[in-house]
Design a protein around this nucleic acid. Structure first.
Lengths: 155, 155
DNA sequence: AAAAACTTGATTAACATGGTCGATTCTAGC
DNA sequence: GCTAGAATCGACCATGTTAATCAAGTTTTT
């Protein structure tokens, strides 16, 4: 499950990208909240995170607001997921950034659970790292670029 | 992240499948705990769940224990994940079994977040439903059966 | 009858999630 | 330089989940 917070983050980014494509005026937090469906007070934290990470910029006071400062093609879905939700790995022992040994695991090298979920994970990473905010905004099916074909393993 | 509980469940099933392949005697909960690395008291609950779902059988009293009663080829990883962790969908609005409308979503049909994660999810489902306990126990890379190829979208 | 082992339900501590609130700091415009 | 409007910051809180542990059963075999 991706968290509600991440969903709000993605939707807010879409709103700001939309505005950026149109004219470029900064949006008040309240307007972003309305257009993305996120509660205003909660959205504050999210926008702060996005700002600290360099995706958006802000101006305070009158005429203030938030605006996208990064090219939507340069913002991958994976970046946002990692920023808001934290590590994406299905097992702690599979995370590069937040590696942790599994207490219950005798030998990591031969752990079958690890091997199998590692397989899933690398396929997932491959897809989600290549998908960008720009893809999220286009109408097409962004995963069409990938084809997942099952190869009969001569059984 | 898959939960620790699910990991214990998978490992316990592997232990029992291993024993089944060898001779077929029921294993005491304590032995399963040792061999899988799970705490005994916690494992009790897990084995109960697996039993109620019909994967394993139990005998009480002296000479009692648990044993696998289903063909490992007929037990998909997805079944176990769903049983222990619950629904696997990345968004509540994508789950078949536990569907829930997203409050913040104006129109589900055109929601881009939903469309994109729906794409991931169906690829994931395809893989995890076809992977079985038997695959988990073999030494090969079970996901070799799938090939994930990136198709350049003539850009 | 007693021992071994499964079964059940209650309880727990720690953490994550999804918020809310109040106070503060900055900035444009009068 | 005052003030209204806006972002910023930090603390707080309610609820639920996770990963266990424990006590007290019940059932079966020897």
């Amino acid at each position: 499950m991706i968290t509600q917070k991440t969903k709000y983050a993605l939707k807010s980014l879409m709103v700001m990208a939309d505005e950026m494509a149109r004219d470029g005026t900064a949006l008040r937090i309240e307007e972003i909240a309305e257009r993305s469906g996120a509660p205003k007070r909660f959205l504050e934290h999210i926008l702060l995170d996005l700002k600290r990470a360099g995706f958006i910029g802000s101006r305070r006071g009158r005429k203030g607001g938030y605006e996208l400062i990064k090219n939507p093609r340069r913002i991958s879905i994976a970046m946002i997921l990692r920023l808001i939700d934290g590590p994406m790995a299905p097992l702690p022992c599979l995370s590069r950034k937040a590696y942790q040994r599994c207490e219950d695991c005798k030998d990591e090298e031969t752990c079958r659970v690890r091997a199998v979920f590692g397989g899933f994970y690398s396929a997932y990473i491959l897809m989600i790292e290549s998908l960008t905010l720009a893809d999220l905004m286009e109408d097409s099916q962004p995963l069409e670029r990938f084809s997942l074909s099952e190869v009969a393993a001569g059984e």
